[in-house]
Amino acid sequence: MIWELTMRTFLLLAFVLFCGPAIAQPAHLKLIIFPGGLSWPIFVAQDKGFFAREGLEVKVTETPGSVFQIKGIMAGDFDIAMTPFDNIVAYQEGQGETSFDVPPDLFVFMGGISSTLRLIVQPGIATFADLRDKTLGVDALSTGYTLLMYRLLEQNGLPPGSYKLERLGGTASRVKALTEGRIAATMVSSPQEILPEQNGFRRLGDIQSMLGRYQALSGAARRSWAASHPNQLQSFIRAYVAAGEWLTDDQNRAEAATIYARYIPNTPDALIAKAREAMLSETEGFQPRAKFDPAGAQTALAVRKQYGVPKKDLPDWRTYVDETFYDEALKAK
């Protein structure tokens, strides 16, 4: 009798161990972002467990510049990029800084940031005319915010050719070159203009007030990857949106500042407060629910049509955007 009970217990345990429900393993996702406060929602999603809640294990890489980022996503080294909308247009249209053996299949699936782009100059620069024949820093010559700078300068009497350009990579590298006196000016995405301005560097131009709304940072991926990983992409979108909503809630202000300081060490509290003000403005900054802005996209396309090389008649913004994954991810929210 005892042997029978022992045998039954053994069989029951074996059934539970081998036939019971398996523990779900997190889906691995490779994300590439630009460093700095513009990635605050990503920091929150990592720190507060929004990615984990969606069953994602996200490996985050900070890019030194847009060329590295686009090359990496095209090579399959990364699944998702947070990158300017214009970068996707440039490479899809063959106007990017590099070419590929296969046609790019990049697309934008959500927004991220509207505008918040400033032309920051040396303390001694008082007018646009003072930039004539000076060296200006750019990420790449033909993509991203460089074309915006071309428009801003030409609108103020400085056509291409009246200044020199130096490729320096992402905003952090350009700000470093500016503060070291190696360049006279550069386009800076908020909130990375705050510290230079506190140290005497000047804001000569502001994109939104001078050119209108502009779709800046956006969520992007390869169409082929998205088609084969729809659940992972939708999970990422939900996590990013949830992190953004948490960040926006004023009750979380103190904890959000702590998270900012954890990912960007040695940042003074006053600067973090200014970063929050800049990125949660009513008119620009982090877009509510990361919703893509068609009007801002049209601004980007108009600028690219003017300065992109080779010259092209660009199609509608919908050619580069597919919000199907976004809509599906948030339809129950």
Rank of each mutant, 00 (worst) to 15 (best):
A270V: 13
E328W: 01
L31C: 10
F201T: 03
H28Q: 15
A278Y: 07
Q69H: 04
I42V: 15
W317V: 04
I42C: 02
A226E: 09
T63L: 09
F78C: 00
L56R: 08
Y260N: 05
L131K: 04
P288R: 05
V44R: 09
V89H: 06
D269Y: 03
A261V: 09
L280H: 13
G219E: 01
E93F: 05
V138D: 03
L280P: 01
F286D: 05
A45Q: 05
A27T: 14
A329I: 03
T324Y: 01
M82D: 12
V138Q: 07
P84K: 11
A275E: 11
A290F: 14
A75C: 01
R53N: 13
A332R: 10
A273D: 11
T6L: 15
G112D: 10
S115R: 04
Y320P: 02
D47S: 14
M1I: 12
E4L: 14
F18K: 08
A270D: 15
P41G: 11
D206Y: 13
L11S: 09
G144N: 07
F43R: 02
I70F: 06
A52H: 08
M82P: 00
V89W: 01
F68I: 04
R118V: 05
F107S: 10
P230H: 12
L233R: 06
N199C: 02
Q95M: 15
A256N: 09
G212E: 06
G36C: 08
D133P: 00
H28D: 12
F286C: 06
I207C: 10
A332S: 14
R174L: 02
N199E: 14
A221F: 02
E180H: 13
Y307R: 07
A270G: 03
M7Y: 07
S99A: 13
S190N: 09
A185C: 10
P288G: 06
I42A: 12
E93Q: 12
F201A: 01
R289P: 00
L158M: 07
S39N: 05
F201E: 01
T258K: 15
G144T: 02
P123D: 11
S235H: 13
G65L: 07
L330F: 04
F15G: 01
Y320A: 02
Y307T: 10
M110L: 12
A24C: 06
Q215H: 01
P191I: 08
L301W: 08
T146P: 00
Y263L: 09
L153A: 10
G157H: 11
G49C: 05
F78M: 09
L165T: 07
I73Q: 07
M279L: 15
E57F: 09
G157K: 10
I113N: 07
L314A: 08
A52L: 09
T98E: 11
R53C: 00
R151D: 15
D101I: 11
L119A: 05
R203S: 15
A90D: 14
A226W: 03
V89I: 15
Y260L: 13
K333W: 14
L165C: 07
I33W: 03
P160W: 06
M1G: 12
S224G: 02
G96N: 02
A242F: 04
T9Y: 12
G181S: 07
K312L: 12
H28Y: 06
L148P: 00
P64H: 07
E323K: 09
G137K: 04
A129D: 14
